[in-house]
């Protein structure tokens, strides 16, 4: 469902329907250093779900996750209220993987940091399929590339 709004004014270059699972905010820096490897991050999310810090099942309401050169914005379907705004330069990495519950759903884990890079946060969303998750990763990767080339 990649829908790029060609009218130029809109910041969003691709929008996806996802569900919000939860977030673990303000992890101290030394903790965030242990979450560099993808598997460490996945295991950390697993443990958080088992400890009840993160739910297994996302909230029912679908959200619109928009990826643009500015970053990732998560808003309600009518886009009236913005739930999260992750600016591109504070996004450290994005990870997508099968949630292992057998329904083919993919989890999207977004690791962000703060401007002083002292703490990091983990934001978890659920995609309807791995294809959707892959598309989101592709668009974000393109955003990183375009941000990189524009800096030079």
């Amino acid at each position: 469902s990649t829908k790029s709004l060609g009218n130029g004014t809109s910041e969003t270059c691709a929008e996806f329907r996802v569900k919000y699972v939860g977030a673990i905010e303000k992890l101290q820096f030394d903790m965030s250093r242990t979450l560099q490897e993808p598997l460490d991050l996945i295991n950390y999310i697993d443990a958080a779900q088992q400890d009840g810090k993160l739910p297994y099942v996302p909230r029912d309401e679908e959200m619109i996750l928009g990826v643009s050169k500015y970053g990732v914005k998560v808003a309600s379907p009518d886009q009236c209220d913005v739930l999260h705004r992750h600016s591109l330069y504070l996004i450290v990495r994005m990870l997508c993987y099968d949630d292992g519950l057998g329904a083919g759903k993919n989890l999207l884990a977004l690791k962000t940091t703060d401007a002083k890079q002292e703490a990091c946060s983990i934001w978890v969303y659920q995609c309807s399929s791995s294809e959707q998750a892959q598309s989101i990763c592709k668009v974000l990767s393109a955003s990183f590339d375009s941000a990189l080339t524009s800096v030079k």
Binding site: Y89, V92, C96, G100, T113, C137, L148
Partner: peptide, 17 residues
């Protein structure tokens, strides 16, 4: 829980962080 393929996108600004 068994995890299948994992796709990672890293911000070049934080490579290795």
């Amino acid at each position: 829980i068994y995890k299948s393929a994992v796709t990672t996108v890293v911000n070049p600004k934080y490579e290795g962080k």
